[in-house]
C-alpha cells in the first residue's frame, strides 16, 4: 500500500466527518460549493474550521481569504490551498552528515512519545539506518520497560538507566555508545512534562547541552510529540517547547480517532515548525512521514 493510501486509511474516519460536515454545511447554507460565500455561509465555514481545532485566529485568517475570493472561486479549493500553504513552506531541521545523528523526542504527558520513538526506530530501520534507543524517561514508572519492549520488537540497541537517575547521564551514555558502535541515529525518549513546569523544562536544556558535548551539533533534530486531540493548548505547548528545547519538528499522534489535529496548522503557521510525522494506529508501522499535500487531500477527500 502506498504511503498516501495508508495515510488516507488512517484518516478515513476523520476525513469522512470533516468532508461530509463541510459538504453539508456549505451546501446547505450557500446553495452549492460554487455559490456566493457570505453571511450565513461564512458562519457555517467558521464552525467547520473551529471544530477541526484550527483555532480562532487561524480560522479568522482562512475566512478572510475565503471571503475575499469566495465570490468567484470554489470555496473548498480556496480553503484547501490556503491550508496547504499554512502547512507547507516551513523547513525542517537541516540534513546533517554527522554520525550518529541525535534525535530528541519531547512533549507533555501522555501524547505518545515512547510509542513514537519505537515506531520511528522501525521507520529508520526500514530506510537502512541503525539506531540506538535511549530511555531518558527516568521519572514515570515502567517507562523504561515499555521502551525496552519496543526496542526489542524493532531490533534496535537499547541504553537504559536506573529509574530516578539524572536523564542527562543516560543521554551521555547512549550517545557515546552510538558513537562507539558506529550507529546512524540515537533516539532519545524523554519524560513527559507539562510545558508550564519551569524546572522540568530546564532539564531539557541540560540534556541538550550534554548531547552537544558528545557529538557536535547534537541534538540535530528535536521532535515535539503532539496529541491530535489537543485543542488550543497545543499552541502554548509548541511555543514553550520551541523556546526551551529548540523544537525542529512535530509528530502528530492518534490521528486514527476522530480528532483532526487542526492545531497543527496553527503551530506550523505561527511558529514555523513543520509537521514531520503522523501516527495513525497502534501497529509498529503506523508512523508515516508527513506530507502537507496528502494530509490536506485526505482531509478533504469526498466521502467514499
Amino acid at each position: 500500500m502506498s504511503v498516501f493510501n495508508r495515510l488516507r486509511n488512517g484518516l478515513r474516519l476523520t476525513t469522512n466527518q470533516l468532508s461530509s460536515l463541510f459538504a453539508n454545511t456549505v451546501t446547505r447554507e450557500t446553495g452549492g460549493l460554487d455559490g456566493d460565500v457570505s453571511g450565513e455561509g461564512l458562519v457555517a465555514l467558521e464552525e467547520t474550521l473551529l471544530q477541526a481545532d484550527i483555532g480562532v485566529a487561524a480560522t479568522a485568517r482562512l475566512l478572510e481569504v475565503a471571503g475575499s475570493r469566495g465570490g468567484t472561486a470554489d470555496v473548498r479549493s480556496v480553503v484547501k490551498a490556503e491550508l496547504r500553504r499554512l502547512l507547507d513552506g516551513t523547513e525542517g531541521a537541516r540534513p546533517t552528515t554527522v554520525r550518529p545523528r541525535v534525535v530528541l523526542v519531547v512533549g507533555v504527558n501522555g501524547t505518545g512519545k515512547t510509542t513514537s520513538v519505537g515506531k520511528l526506530a522501525h521507520l529508520l530501520n526500514q530506510a537502512g539506518e541503525r539506531s540506538v534507543i535511549c530511555a531518558a524517561d527516568t521519572f514515570r514508572a515502567a517507562a523504561v520497560e515499555q521502551l525496552e519492549i519496543w526496542a526489542r520488537r524493532v531490533g534496535a540497541d537499547f541504553v537504559r538507566a536506573r529509574s530516578g537517575t539524572d536523564p542527562a547521564a543516560v543521554v551521555f551514555d547512549a550517545i557515546s555508545a552510538g558513537k562507539a558502535r558506529g550507529r546512524d541515529v540515537v533516539l532519545i525518549d524523554t519524560a513527559g512534562r507539562l510545558h508550564t513546569h519551569v524546572n522540568l523544562m530546564r532539564e531539557l536544556d541540560k540534556i541538550r547541552r550534554v548531547a552537544g558535548r558528545v557529538v557536535s551539533g547534537a541534538p540535530h533534530e528535536t521532535l515535539l510529540v503532539l496529541d491530535a486531540t489537543v485543542g488550543q493548548n497545543g499552541l502554548a505547548q509548541g511555543r514553550a517547547f520551541l523556546e526551551a528545547a529548540g523544537v525542529t519538528g512535530v509528530v502528530l499522534t492518534k490521528l486514527d480517532g476522530t480528532a483532526k489535529g487542526g492545531i497543527a496548522a496553527a503551530i506550523t503557521s505561527e511558529l514555523g515548525v513543520p509537521i514531520r510525522y503522523v501516527g495513525v494506529g497502534e501497529e509498529l508501522d503506523d508512523l508515516l512521514p508527513f506530507s502537507a499535500e496528502h494530509y490536506v487531500e485526505a482531509l478533504f477527500e469526498p466521502v467514499w
Partner: peptide, 9 residues
C-alpha cells in the same frame, strides 16, 4: 479525560 483536549472531547 485530558484537560487539554480540544473540540473532539
Amino acid at each position: 479525560a485530558d484537560a487539554m483536549t480540544g473540540q473532539d472531547a
